[in-house]
Amino acid sequence: MSLQSVKAFFAEYAPDIEVIETPTSSATVALAAEAHGVEPGQIAKTICLRVGDRVMLVVARGDARIDNRKSRDAFGGKPRMLDAEQVAEITGHPIGGVCPFGLASPLPVYCDVSLRAYDQVVPAAGATNAAVKIGVERMAALTGAEWCDICQDELGPGHRAFGR
């Protein structure tokens, strides 16, 4: 049902954007980058966070890591990742397919400035084998996202990124 809600979202708001379904999983940043022939940073991972009573989505480049201090400053408290069951219930999307499109319930969406390193990014599309290729600014506009700066500035060697 999640994939269908994303397809319905694009049919209504951006019919020129095609949902790409791959025969293999693209549930992680590495798998998605391989499946779509892009570098890991170009994958737009969507993370579902809770800060106090607020639940939100943050979309960041695939190889970025959230900076605890920056995120506390931006959101007024320490963000905590939701578990897989909570994410699926709130977004309507499974882990590995979470995206800011076709959500089960309205959520505030934030796009990290790290995404602006690319003109086009590849976020998931509601399933572990589905994605879209979309312009960064267009994705933010379609989802009503606010821009934030909560990721670490440098992606030094050996960094670890949250899963997509």
Rank of each mutant, 00 (worst) to 15 (best):
K7T: 05
A30Q: 15
V109R: 00
C111N: 02
A131V: 14
R69A: 14
V55G: 06
E137W: 00
A27C: 04
F75C: 02
D149L: 11
Q152H: 05
V136C: 00
V87E: 11
D67I: 15
G97P: 15
L31W: 11
C148S: 04
Y110W: 05
A14Y: 01
G126Q: 08
C99Y: 01
G135A: 15
E85D: 14
S71M: 10
E18T: 15
P15D: 03
S26D: 08
R164T: 11
V29G: 02
A88E: 14
M1Y: 15
E85M: 11
N129W: 06
P94Q: 04
P100S: 01
Y118Q: 09
S71C: 10
G52S: 04
V29C: 03
L82Q: 12
V87K: 09
C48G: 02
P94C: 03
D83E: 12
D149H: 10
A35P: 15
A32W: 04
Y118W: 12
A127R: 13
R164C: 08
V109W: 00
P123L: 03
D16W: 04
C151W: 00
R54P: 10
E89N: 08
V38H: 08
F10G: 07
G126P: 14
G163Y: 07
P100N: 02
P100H: 01
H159Q: 13
L49N: 02
T24V: 09
D73H: 14
L142S: 00
K133G: 07
K7Y: 02
T143Q: 10
V87D: 10
G144D: 01
D153N: 06
N129C: 08
G156C: 05
I134W: 03
S2T: 07
R54N: 12
S25F: 12
P15F: 07
K7M: 03
E12G: 06
D16M: 06
D67S: 12
S26W: 09
T46A: 12
H159L: 14
D53F: 13
Y13M: 02
V121H: 01
A141F: 04
V136K: 00
L3H: 14
V109N: 00
A84Q: 15
T24E: 11
T46K: 10
D83G: 09
I134F: 11
G102F: 08
A33D: 06
R69G: 06
P79S: 02
P100G: 03
R61Q: 14
D73Y: 14
H93E: 09
N68P: 08
E39I: 15
D53T: 11
W147I: 03
I134T: 15
